[in-house]
Amino acid sequence: MSADTASVRSVPAEALRSPGPSFLGVVRGELLKLSRQRALWALLAGGTLLLVVTGLALLTTGDLETRYKASHESFFANTFDILGALFNTGSGIVLLLSAARLFGMEYSGGTIRILLARGVGRLQLYLAKLVALAVLGAGLLVGFTAIAGAMIAIAIQSWTGSIGGLTSLPPVSVELLKVILLVALVSVGVTVLLGSTAAILGRSLSFGMAVAMGFFPADNFGTLILFILQRVTHNDAILKVSAYLLGPNLNVLVSLLEPGLKLRPIFASPLVTVSAAHAWTVVGVYSAVFLAGSVLLLVRRDVLE
């Protein structure tokens, strides 16, 4: 350490003075924290490898080629639906872990006190972290779409000698793609809110990660338990509970929004018939509860870490 501080401060004091915290600056800091997480990069590399291997395995089977040649609409409907479900699951894992870590580490490491002691508002910090996670989610969607699109293009090129079938998609497939993208974005949003709420609630990295990672499996597995309970008790009302679980409603959204395509959700869906409006409401209520809960806990609690 040097006592001669005056001589080492070559940056003018005015250049270091800030009128207050900068929201964009806070977001940039959060992105820096995300980008330095080796575990995140390892997860992304693993996910990409898995996507490519799975995609190649699917696309090189003769079944898909036959289906493509028989009906472009049917091929794209099934392919997009499967890819959408894959994205929601894969991105869900990445985002839940990232959200729980980005929030939880501030509590576990005590670094939240550095941030707030600089005058950063609690709400400002919360929103900045959400924005950083949304950027990650958007990046995942763009990356996934690019890789999946490239694989489909390669497959169609090898089957027909041209990628014309992909560049001029049937209108119904374009509509489906829009719905899948919309649901993917909603899924990204809900997932980020869930992961952050878990970490804020427990004020801990490990608690946040455990709850965030356990929520969707428990949610999906819950339908199976409800089904078994109904079989044992013969009480149909039990099945209605599944209509209020988050995961099953998210899983069924695409098929509800595109009823004409008669898509069947890959993962658990509500055990009773639900409408698209109902599914949106359930997803919206969960999101609102996560958001309000996080804000309330962040704003009202003292920072004792």
Partner: peptide, 8 residues
């Protein structure tokens, strides 16, 4: 990361 809080 801390520098970014106040705009870098």
């Amino acid at each position: 990361a801390v520098g970014d809080l106040l705009g870098g």
